[in-house]
Nucleic acid binder design. Structure first.
Lengths: 340, 340
DNA sequence: TTGAAAGCGGTACCAC
DNA sequence: GTGGTACCGCTTTCAA
């Protein structure tokens, strides 16, 4: 019992070869036509000593690690942690583990992360990419590793995407406000070139233009929440007279906005109506409840992991065929913050 | 260029041995007194072909994977995802990656997870354990892998712990309510044997007893949020007359409670005062703002990962010495929900 | 139907 | 100072 337990020690103990043990362990007994008694003998002994194959050795040999990298903007954001939960669950059931990290939207960090995961021979990637990692992702694809891009869209990257119809969602949310009688509608967003932000902005702009209204756009730097609140406070102080409604491009900007609005003593929706992109438990419970555009988190997660798993189950040759672009619909949830 | 790049191909290309390359790559050039020019030659070539050592092979050989397992109750809970963020960041800076999973407080699943991570030769563990994994954790320790237990305490497990002073926190929160003049104070908790829940309950009971008041304890099963809300609704319907204040043992129970209270049309704090264990952005923004007991998330995370990293930097012999039990203080945040 | 053996890509002992 | 090489544990081809 002194010796370490390995496939070799099992083989030796049973007086057979490692090959046979390996075949039995990998369910290839039938295929290799190994006798039932031998199979049973092996299985019984394996059971007895509670043997678990060393997955590192297996990975080294096969080149498969059964690990999926999940690279998101910030795992502590409810949106991403909810996705992480779903993805992990599904991956787990399929024998895959998840290794994660937060990019903070830092391209250099993201590239470094990808490199590290390449060394670790991660089998596939689910990435919420910052700008500037296009080539890296393409390189990953070329190396035969499947990549699913989440939440945003990358030009010049031929890989699977799962995202929501940002443009349409904001277009119709803006329209909703207009139908409610609001005219001076502001759009507050991040100063970012990320596709999802740009699409949301475009949806707003188009709706405003289609109705011959004047756009009011405020871009704030992606800073921490205190800074954000300060910016919004001063913006609102100056513009409160000119604005009847605001659409926030993300839930955390909206939260900062709500704080600023409270500080200014403005009433929602009387003084100002509010819509937020991306729902949040807080919005449902807030007084008044905040109208929002909810993203289908389960569906996003499910599509992403299913897409990845399906790629992982094929041979490399198939991988670069027909990248899929899955666009999911959001749900507009009208609440009290837009009740005219 | 057709051949795969490996330490062997580098050695061959440069006409030296793999040993030398390996030493250079691992910074043992000095120690092994390899000539500077040789070192430079190797480094330059490595740079040129952008060689990255295969970490699987290295792990197989060394037995170290540079991976830390983070096993929490549910990664989508804000408390845990915030911890995940902090821990990942610190681990990353120290060359470790994080692999995570959610236990859902399922002991069998957790045991299985641990086994899988053992196969993967994970270097260390940070675990938020359900009941019933004590032996497994002890086995891990015996195998020489450091384990830090988070959020709860396990009897009969000699390992590092990081948690908050649950008992004292609730004791003094209860006292606060009593000082505010509340007499009929209820405590709503999960029907769970987890140490942190029991300690919170004890803190409440002791404070109540010390003041000769009557305890009102409601335990609800750890079910989904809709069920929870239903239970709370019927409980409150029956007991509303008898209760002046409620302490919720977790933030998500409190959220369910708030929904129930709203449905019943009760006013906070006039009809009923509220305190929640574990702060939440929602509580700050809610109307009225909810008094809470805030856990020091950064400090918890930092202590946990530092503890683990320090164990990882020692030899196995040291590992089983003097398990540390770090108990951190919470912050009581009085808000409008307890303003008498 | 089973076994021998060649790797997968590094590490590190031991020899020169 | 540097090189040869056994070995980590498993998979898989080829031979018997």
């Amino acid at each position: 019992m002194g010796k370490k337990i390995s496939i070799t020690s099992i083989a030796k103990h049973l007086g057979i070869s490692t090959t046979t043990v390996s075949f039995v362990l990998n369910g290839k007994a039938q295929e290799k036509r190994i006798s039932d008694k031998l199979v049973k003998k092996v299985m019984d002994y394996v059971e007895e000593i509670d043997y678990k194959p060393n997955s590192l050795a297996r990975s080294l040999r096969t080149g498969k690690s059964n690990i999926i990298a999940l690279i998101v903007e910030d795992i502590s954001f409810p949106f991403f942690s909810a996705i992480a939960k779903e993805i992990e669950e599904k991956a787990y059931k399929n024998g895959y583990r998840i290794i994660y990290s937060s990019t903070e939207n830092d391209a250099a960090k993201t590239r470094e992360l990808i490199e590290i995961y390449q060394d670790k021979h991660v089998d596939g990637y689910i990435i919420v990419p910052p700008e500037g990692v296009e080539e890296k992702i393409n390189a990953l694809r070329l190396s035969g590793k499947p990549v699913v891009v989440l939440d945003r869209y990358l030009d010049n990257v031929e890989t699977d995407h799962v995202l929501v119809n940002n443009y349409d969602s904001v277009y119709s949310a803006t329209h909703y406000l207009i139908d409610q009688g609001y005219k001076n509608i502001a759009f507050i967003t991040l100063s970012s070139l990320q596709s999802q932000m740009l699409d949301r902005l475009s949806g707003y702009e188009q709706a405003i233009q289609d109705n011959n209204l004047r756009p009011i756009i405020k871009e704030i730097a992606p800073v921490d929440s205190l800074e954000r609140e300060k910016h919004l406070l001063s913006f609102l102080e100056r513009k409160r007279k000119d604005i009847e409604a605001i659409i926030f491009s993300t839930n955390y900007i909206c939260v900062s906005g709500l704080k600023a609005i409270k500080k200014l003593g403005l009433n929602i929706p009387e003084d100002i109506a509010i819509v937020s992109f991306d729902d949040y438990e807080l919005f449902e419970m807030y007084t008044p409840a905040i109208t929002s555009i909810a993203q289908p988190i389960e569906s996003i997660s499910e599509n992403a992991i299913n897409l990845l798993l399906s790629r992982l189950n094929r041979r490399t040759a198939d991988v670069d065929k027909s990248p899929q672009k899955i666009v999911l619909s959001t749900t507009f949830i009208p609440r009290d913050s837009t009740a005219h």
